[in-house]
Structures are given as C-alpha cells and as structure tokens.
C-alpha cells in the first residue's frame, strides 16, 4: 500500500526547483516508503562467503548519480571555456542546473534507501579531454555525446528497478536529457531528433 507522502523537504525545495514536473518526480520518488525501504545496498550484503545479492536499486541510482555529477562538471568546463557565445552559454548553464537537480534528487533518494551517495570529484579529477575542445562546436558536440549517453543509461536502468516509482522517476529524467540532446543537436545544425526511438 503506498500513499503519496510529501516530506517537508520536498515542499521546501519547491521554492528553488523551477519546474513543477521535477517536484512531481520528487514526490513520486519518495512515495511508497515501504517498497523503498525493502530495497537496500547489495554491496553490504556481499560480505565474504555470503550469497551474491542482485544489483540493488541503490546501486543503480548511485551509478546514475556518478554520471550526473560528471555531467555537472562537464558543463562547468563548457561554460568556463569561453568558447560558447551568449545564448548558447546560457543554455549550457540551464542544462547544468537540470543535472544538479537530478543529482540532488538521486542523492537524497539513495540516502532515503539507506545507502551512501557517491561523491562528486573535482573537475580536474574527471580528466576531461579539454585538449580536444578548441571551438564552440567541439564543446557542444562533447555535451551532446554526454546527453545522448545519459539517455541510453537511463533507458538501460529503467527495466532494472525493483521499485516502479524509481523507474518512473528515471523516465522523467530521461525525457529531460533527451530534450537537452535534441536542443544541442539543433544548435550544432544537425537534425534535432534523428530517430523515432532512442537506444
């Protein structure tokens, strides 16, 4: 039985999360506490000699969190590169904001499930191929590649979640990142939506 419970911090977050959709996702993510409490950190169960646990929802979320954290840092590099001009640079900052909101939500959900959120590295620790980012086009292409990869990653995560609310939340993030990808392709002068399906 899962009632929609809106924790106080979700309501508080409304003030600085601009999209109503994201707030709805947050609520969906945190609804159904019993089911959420049932999933736990597989690694903790994998103590020596014990039976291997299935890949848990916490681990799937944490892996997604790691990729979001890298995307935030990548947009930082892009925005600070001086290679993006005004309207496009603003776009990059907006998209970075979305990735921050995704990361925030993923980290909170990992904690809620009793896990430890993966920690962001410093920008330098990601070893971005900055030697290959010489023009605004290079930066946009780099961002588009990350967004396309992120869409695939969420698509690959959705069928694995034991908790369907988490699958829905991942679908919500996937949709946002697919829009980023399309807009970046448009900015690159490519067909914004190249296919009927993402893969």
């Amino acid at each position: 039985m899962s009632k929609i419970i809106v924790p106080a911090f979700v309501l508080a977050r409304r003030s600085f999360i601009s999209q109503a959709m994201l707030s709805a996702t947050a609520i969906a993510l945190l609804a159904g506490n019993e089911a959420l409490a049932a999933s736990n950190d597989g690694d903790k169960q994998n103590g020596a000699g014990e039976q291997l646990a299935a890949t848990s929802d916490v681990e799937i979320l944490n892996t997604a969190l790691g990729a979001e954290q890298e995307a935030i840092a990548a947009y930082q590099v892009g925005a600070e590169s001086g290679l993006l001009k005004k309207p496009v640079r603003d776009l990059a900052v907006t998209f970075q904001g979305h990735h921050k909101a995704h990361a925030d939500l993923l980290a909170k959900t990992v904690k809620k499930l009793g896990g430890t959120p993966s920690e962001a590295k410093t920008v330098a620790q990601y070893h971005f191929p900055t030697d290959k980012l010489k023009t605004g086009t290079d930066v946009l292409r780099f961002a588009a590649t990350l967004e396309k990869g992120a869409v695939s990653a969420y698509l690959g995560a959705i069928p694995l979640f034991a908790n369907r609310d988490l699958a829905k939340a991942a679908g919500s993030i996937l949709g946002d990142e697919a829009m980023h990808w399309a807009v970046l392709r448009q900015a690159l002068g490519e067909a914004p939506v190249p296919d009927a399906f993402v893969s």
Binding site: D43, N46, L52, A53, A54, T55, E59, G156, A157, P159
Partner: peptide, 14 residues
C-alpha cells in the same frame, strides 16, 4: 550485465 554478474554496479539492462 546484472544477470551475468549479480550485484554488479553497472546498472544497465544490456
């Protein structure tokens, strides 16, 4: 991935 190595951190359906 998760069928071949249960408990892998690669949360990807394949």
């Amino acid at each position: 991935p998760t069928g071949f190595i249960p408990g892998t951190r690669m949360g990807y359906a394949g």
